[in-house]
Amino acid sequence: MSAGTAKLNVTVAEVKPVNDLVTRFKFVRTGGGDLPTFSGGAHTVVEMQDGDITRLNAYSLMSNPADRGAYTISVRRDDQGRGGSRFMHTKVKEGMEMVISNPVNLFSLDLRAKKHLMLAGGIGITPFMAQMHQLSMMGGHFELHYAVRTASLGTYARELSERYPGKVHIYHDDQNEAIDLNTLLANQPLGTHVYVCGPKGMINWVHATAEEMGWPREAVHSEEFLAPASGKPFEVKCAVSNKIVQVGEHQSLLEALEAAGIDAPYLCRGGACGQCETNVIGYDGKFLHYDHWLTDEQKAGGKHIMPCVSRFEGKTLVLDR
């Protein structure tokens, strides 16, 4: 099967700045018609034609999954990033036609849960917005704890508090408010599932605390998409396609393969889903593994690499592509 998922042709129906860092985008199907239904927690991969470069970034769908008229995403501008979010903020205008992927869910609700306890940090709020829509429609039991830097950067904090009274708790960093995780986890009813989306430190903290407190591993869910790290340029030999590919400083290995016309599979493009796992045929140098997919053993073994986020430094790298 070819890379990625089936594509959707969409038109930007609205570009709406939410605060200093976050802008919301609304997509409708180009030429009219319904978009596919999705499940809360799903993301779409947005294709950006940035000059010669095609950028593909995954963003969580935040709109009501039952609304097939439009999808919305929110993008946080990252000035230190490689340019995807900057492109969305500066180049994308209402009326523009774009290509996005069919929804993919790598952060889905466990529908067996008696209660869904959601922990969000910053822009990590977006997948929960779709999940809360879905749960409130189904009469599901949920509660959101949302940490934001300041009230003005608390993306959608006020809307959510109004939409789901009594179910939304906001914590402001600048007022030294913090989620009291131990107390929170200690007071959950049996059958609660915990979901966390936010910065890496927050995700690790939630997993570690839940484990210490004896929570089953299966009841704690997280999603973190990594942005591919920049790094020194390197060269890759692709044995199957018989091509030598140069990976630029601000380019991921996956992007370099795609630019060379090599059909490489992917889904999340953020080191989480495992779809792009590639066999290493030979190497002389050092891997820079950044993904969440490979085990530590695999990372040390030098037989696999996740080209969406990981890099290489050294003389030669030969891949099974």
Binding site: T5, A6, P36, F38, N102, L267
Partner: peptide, 13 residues
């Protein structure tokens, strides 16, 4: 299993 877990909407097998 790996294949099935990655089956996507709109792309049945």
């Amino acid at each position: 299993l790996k294949f099935l877990l990655n089956i996507q909407q709109g792309q049945p097998a």
